[in-house]
């Protein structure tokens, strides 16, 4: 069975229908780009995957089990803004993800456990190119660096899927390109399932292995809220990358292990 199964999901607020009858299967390791006009429910869909909202009807299965109805470490998230904690340094922002699950009482680690968490966090931060800014506060970072931090923060949890809600919407084009490269590298290294909402079609085409277009098929001018959006196009993209990924996945584990460390 597929990794994520969306079974006839509807979402409505009051009499405003946002999504109708969504049916979708997503395999492990796919990079889905979710595009569509604003207000067409792509972010709503992402919030349901995150557990921030519950479907009005239907259900979403992760590995054949119903999705946990509140945010948890199995799903990483990067928002467009407010993704990082302003009161923690760059290093602590990432180390926090190692501290919280292990310290349910105090929320922090001490001594060697703390040092280990910080070393591990520093390694990941080097990978995203933030090793020069470990002691800075997020407000001292540029927008692009803040989003690098937010991605590192999500990845330290080794989530089962990474959800991105217009993560690069506020960045200027040059920086955005760098971020695309970084994100693709990380996706290739980790084999993570990624779902990314974007309003930039070309971004969706560049990054995704699958493009999902959300749109309203039916529209009643007398009752604008009566019908919701569906997925109108489901396009496989970047088949070469998808094939590479599948080929790598088919290799025996000891070979892929060697590849990943190389």
């Amino acid at each position: 069975m597929s990794f994520i199964q969306v079974r006839n999901v509807w979402q409505q607020y009051g009499d405003q229908t946002v999504l109708e009858n969504l049916r979708l299967d997503i395999d492990q390791g796919e990079f889905c780009a979710l595009v569509g006009a604003s207000g067409c429910g792509k972010s709503t869909f992402l919030r349901m995957l995150l557990g921030q909202e519950r479907p009005h009807r239907g259900q979403i299965l992760l590995d054949d089990k119903p999705l946990v109805a509140e945010p948890d470490p199995s799903r990483g998230i990067v928002f467009q803004r407010y993704s990082v904690l302003p009161h923690l340094s760059v290093l602590d922002n990432v180390a926090l993800g190692l501290e919280l699950p292990r310290a349910p009482l105090l929320g922090r680690l001490f001594g060697r456990a703390k040092a280990e968490a910080r070393t591990q966090a520093a390694q990941l931060l080097r990978r995203v190119g933030l090793d020069h800014a470990l002691d800075k506060y997020p407000s001292q970072l540029s927008g692009g660096m803040q989003q690098r931090l937010a991605i590192a923060q999500a990845l330290i949890m080794k989530p089962r899927m990474l959800l991105l809600d217009e993560p690069f919407g506020a960045l200027d084009p040059g920086i955005r390109k760098d971020m695309h490269a970084l994100l693709l590298e990380l996706w290739q290294e980790t084999g993570l399932t990624v779902l990314m909402v974007t309003h930039d079609l070309s971004e969706g085409f560049t990054l995704g292995t699958r493009l999902l277009v959300f749109d309203k098929v039916r529209n009643d001018p007398q009752a604008p809220g009566a019908y919701g959006a569906r997925i109108t196009y489901d396009l496989p993209l970047n088949l070469d990358r998808r094939a590479t990924r599948e080929a790598v996945a088919a290799l025996p584990a000891h070979v892929t292990g060697a590849l990943k460390t190389a």
């Binding site: 945010p71 928002f79 407010y82 904690l85 919280l100 699950p101 009482l105 105090l106």
Partner: peptide, 15 residues
């Protein structure tokens, strides 16, 4: 967003 992010980082209500 920050409260959700913290939950995805493994926080319970108290932490």
């Amino acid at each position: 967003e920050l409260l959700i992010k913290a939950q995805t980082l493994g926080a319970n209500t108290w932490t």
